[in-house]
């Protein structure tokens, strides 16, 4: 064995600069846009004139001075939490229901996966058409719940798949041992199998929560932010602002969204990861 820290790989089969194209792409398509997201937020970039001048914190001042940004942020968080809860409840329920590999279950799983593959805009427009004439998308209090349910309906197949995979990896001998120890099926399920699903929960909750923070398509297609802007999540607000030619303000908002997602992501993933440590 060659020297080196334990676990480190010392096989030098390829020169390191082979990584340059990959890092180049990463830099241009991921790192630079993020940097610009920060840079443009401090300028007066707009559709009205050609020059771009730095303006310091003016955009932030303006956004925080009227309540629109905070309302949009609040709606975004409510929406994301609702989606995370619904999507995981539905996905988990379906996974438990369709766990056994019977023919019927296999077919049913396929059907529940179809919405995942559908275009989000198509889903939105279909539900908008279905609810036409009813008051489901017109109530200023409950519409956000309805839209979150639609979002969760579209993505529950994916959560189901991940929970299924989680359930399948639980070794049979563990549950068997529980049964021999006298645990009922109910107890075995809640005390043994559910805790062992922790990694699947981490992934599902994190992706549903953080994914729906960046939501746009389904809300835009079903309500466009209405009624009375009660479903105007941040991305719709950003889209409207950008459309008015206020590019810098829109960039500032998307920076706020980026920060919000980051601020929420770390504690959420940390807490969920903590649960996994007992495994």
């Amino acid at each position: 064995m060659v020297t080196g820290a334990p676990g480190s790989i010392n096989r030098r089969t390829h020169p390191l600069w082979f990584l340059v194209p990959a890092y180049g792409l990463l830099l241009v398509f991921f790192f630079l846009p993020t940097v610009f997201n920060f840079v443009y937020a401090f300028t007066d970039w707009s559709g009205f004139k050609a020059e771009i001048n730095p303006v310091g914190f003016e955009n932030f001042d303006q956004l925080t001075s009227d309540g629109t940004l905070f309302r949009a942020l609040r709606i975004t968080i409510v929406y994301a939490v609702l989606v995370a809860v619904f999507q995981n409840l539905f996905g988990f329920g379906l996974a438990v229901l369709l766990e056994r590999d019977t023919v019927v279950n296999r077919i049913a799983r396929t059907f529940f996966l179809i919405p995942v593959l559908m275009s989000a805009l198509a889903v939105g427009y279909i539900f908008q058409a279905l609810f036409q004439g009813s008051t489901l998308l017109a109530d200023t209090t409950w519409t956000i719940v309805v839209v979150a349910l639609i979002h969760a309906w579209k993505w529950m197949g994916l959560s189901m798949l991940i929970y299924l995979a989680g359930l399948k990896t639980i070794p049979l001998d563990v549950t068997e041992a529980a049964h021999i120890d006298g645990a009922s099926r109910w107890t075995a399920f809640w005390k043994i199998r559910v805790p062992l699903l922790a990694p699947a929960v981490t992934f599902n909750v994190a992706t549903a929560l953080l994914g729906s923070m960046n939501g746009f398509d389904i809300v835009q297609a079903t309500t466009g932010g209405g009624p009375a802007r009660t479903t105007e999540i941040l991305n719709i607000f950003i889209y409207r602002t950008f459309g008015q030619g206020l590019f810098a303000q829109a960039t500032t908002m998307s920076l706020m969204l980026f920060l919000l997602v980051a601020v929420m992501a770390f504690p959420v993933i940390y807490v969920l990861r903590k649960r996994e440590e007992v495994l």
Binding site: K49, T140, A228, G245, L246
Partner: peptide
């Protein structure tokens, strides 16, 4: 829809008008 008063409508409109007009020079 019942979530804004006429005064709030006027204020929100004026605020946005100023923001856009300023951006346009």
């Amino acid at each position: 829809a019942g979530t804004m008063t006429p005064e709030q409508v006027a204020k929100a409109t004026q605020d946005q008008f100023e923001q856009l007009a300023k951006a346009a020079g």
